[in-house]
């Protein structure tokens, strides 16, 4: 153990860290409050058009109203379910496809230009086709989320599979490993960090797909509320839905980050 002065300096260092953390949190809270305060004030003083930009107090009133009559829960539930489903199917589907491409290198070479085109194409443009094909409802909305996430996941994860250091494969081959064993023991686990970073991207993409899907067809969900609010010119409803989306998207992102932390605790880079 160090002497008294070392202890003291360590204590001072911890104090400094704490102070810095408090400083950052204070600013974050300050910005949050300032944003809503400015919004409220400028709306009340008619600096901005209250009909278009509404105001926090109106949104809050709407929130109270919608939660007391319970009508909002259904919308939240529907959208969350669609987004989570789109996210999971898109991500897992992408990883499976990447595995198939890795397993059959010839197929991946053949499909390469098609993947490039599919990736470059704005997937939301497929919306009308998906809706006609799958019928207006949950399925086509989930499909929108999936379509947006799956191609980019396939491409990113497949290139991660290919970038795994050949020498890990060499080690396994000297033990006589089969192709499946090589995949299971080296290729897949070595690519986990990349897969997790696609999780994060896919959270955002699944939201885009689902909200756009709801714009196009649905009768429920937060995307539907936005488009409905827009049609009846109730921008309080639009902003209210937007804030809810921001809130839940943020939470999903946090959850994914927690999973990431859990999974890569043991593997700081070489």
């Amino acid at each position: 153990m160090g002497n008294k002065y070392d202890e003291l300096r360590f204590f001072q260092y911890k104090q400094k860290l704490k102070k810095e953390r408090r400083f950052i949190t204070c600013w974050q809270i300050f910005i949050f409050i300032m944003f809503f305060a400015c919004w409220e004030i400028s709306s009340r003083l008619k600096w901005i058009d209250p009909l278009i930009f509404s105001s926090p107090s109106r949104v809050a009133n709407l929130f109270l109203e919608k939660t007391t009559d319970g009508s909002i829960w259904l919308h939240i539930q529907v959208t969350l379910l669609e987004t989570v489903a789109g996210f999971i199917i898109g991500t897992i589907g992408g990883i499976v496809l990447a595995g198939v491409l890795w397993w059959f290198p010839k197929i991946s070479k053949i499909l390469d230009p098609y993947l490039v085109v599919l990736n470059a194409m704005p997937k939301v443009a497929l919306g009308p086709i998906i809706i006609v094909a799958l019928g207006p409802g949950y399925f086509s909305i989930i499909a929108m989320g999936v379509v947006i996430a799956i191609i980019i996941t396939t491409i990113v994860v497949y290139s991660a599979f290919r970038e795994v250091d050949e020498n890990y494969v060499k080690v396994l081959r000297t033990f006589g490993a089969s192709r499946y064993q090589i995949f299971k023991e080296a290729i897949f686990p070595a690519s986990i960090p990349t897969m997790i970073s696609t999780f994060k991207v896919n959270v955002g993409l699944a939201w885009v797909g689902v909200i756009v899907g709801e714009f196009l067809v649905s009768e429920k969900g937060l995307g539907y509320l936005i488009i409905y609010g827009f049609q009846v010119f109730d921008f309080t409803l639009v902003l209210f839905s937007l804030l809810l989306i921001a809130f839940f998207a943020g939470i999903m992102y946090q959850v994914v980050e927690k999973i990431e932390y859990k999974l890569i605790q043991n593997r700081s880079s070489r």
């Binding site: 080690v171 033990f175 023991e185 080296a186 686990p189 043991n266 880079s269």
Partner: peptide, 18 residues
């Protein structure tokens, strides 16, 4: 080229495992 996600013992046992 030890596998970073395996413990040392698991790494040593890689051959028998395969």
């Amino acid at each position: 080229y030890l596998f970073p996600w395996k413990t040392i013992k698991e790494n040593v046992l890689l051959g028998p495992h395969i």
